[in-house]
Design a protein around this nucleic acid. Sequence first.
DNA 1: CAGTGGTCTAGACCACGGG
DNA 2: CCGTGGTCTAGACCACTGG
Lengths: 239, 239
Amino acid sequence: MTSTQRYLEMADILEAELAHVPVGAQVPSEHVLAERFHVSRPAARAALQELERRLLVRRVQGVGTFRRGRVEYVISAHFPPSFSETVRLAGAEPASRLVSCGVRRAVEQERARLQLQPGAAVWTVERVFSVNGEVAAYATSVLPRRPLLNLDRELGDEVSLHRVLRRRYGLTVVRARYRISLDVPPQGIAEHLTGGSRGPVWLAESVNRAAGGPYVEYARTYLRPDVLDVTFEIEEETH
Amino acid sequence: MTSTQRYLEMADILEAELAHVPVGAQVPSEHVLAERFHVSRPAARAALQELERRLLVRRVQGVGTFRRGRVEYVISAHFPPSFSETVRLAGAEPASRLVSCGVRRAVEQERARLQLQPGAAVWTVERVFSVNGEVAAYATSVLPRRPLLNLDRELGDEVSLHRVLRRRYGLTVVRARYRISLDVPPQGIAEHLTGGSRGPVWLAESVNRAAGGPYVEYARTYLRPDVLDVTFEIEEETH
DNA sequence: CAGTGGTCTAGACCACGGG
DNA sequence: CCGTGGTCTAGACCACTGG
């Protein structure tokens, strides 16, 4: 048996209809749906919000409600540790914007992860990543300052931090440790990532090293689950 | 600057107050909060729903709103592939309930993953897992029928499928492949897992083998992110 | 400017759970 | 039974976006 609640019944009907709607197409507005189903606007609104919770639509104030499609984002040993390359593999268009880049002393946690001396200085690089024009991720990278003098100047407008490390410093970055969980981002990051709204999002933490060398990056990346269909996989080694 | 919206301002105030509230304690009701903040009940309700989205509280119809705490659930190569053991490691009390156990022919996807002959028969075992009395996960296990005759009888009231495999069939189960993503569960599973509400939840897929032997299990497990603080981690091998 | 979604009011009735 | 949260109405005003 189906829902006895009106707005869930509406959501189920609309979900079935949405199966044939192409990604990006506009969905009827709250006002139109209220008229069609003979309910008040708050009830129609609840139905659209339910569809948003099911990751089927995207809502933008002042513009409308649209069919959503998620972009596949696969994390595994076989893929390089780069946002841009991972997104391009799914056939989508990545973009990135530098939020800040500066130097400060490493805190205890960062020293431990990067195996630095007490009092060591580190770069902190904050970036926002987008996919097809929509904000999808927010990353904080911490890198030792020592072998990477002038990183801020070398970065410039470059989209890819790892490309700079490879081309300017001769470092090929590989994953050493990786962990992923689901967390509610702090307010400052939620503002960049979701416009202030704070639901749970992916939190990926990775410690990367130069191939055959020392640790060079500790990164914390928040990823929006409604935009990115993240899959994280491991396989046993074939002996 | 803080929120200009009343309900978000309330949520921020309540979030700060909740920091000192023990897990499980009751939170003021919608009615009480509406009075305290001089707003209508829908506005007070919106504030509590915002706290629920931030995973800070748990709401139960007819009972009340309570401070929530998540149980740590770590998935890695170092931990055994067992729900019960993983939960107990975090100091919480696991429970499980058998929903169904039967035999049918394997579908294409299952045949490929378990490396079975065309037309092979498989067991399907469906279970609900709880933590501290709250539903936390729903698992579907598919196992080859051939070496596991009478699995239904052997299972009985046993909580742990893997314990049965070890004690009755002499099989120690280890992970071969594991992948995790975030998905909206189908309606039938959402009913068991969240009482019908359909937001995104963890979906863990694992292919397990008998130590040094053939594949014995393909499992699809849905896990509630509000109940379980799932962390999935990999480390490079130390050579 | 018109149309969208975001917030809010002041009520109403219902479903549920516990005493 | 009462109090809880869940649903719903019929309006209102606002913020935002686009033409």
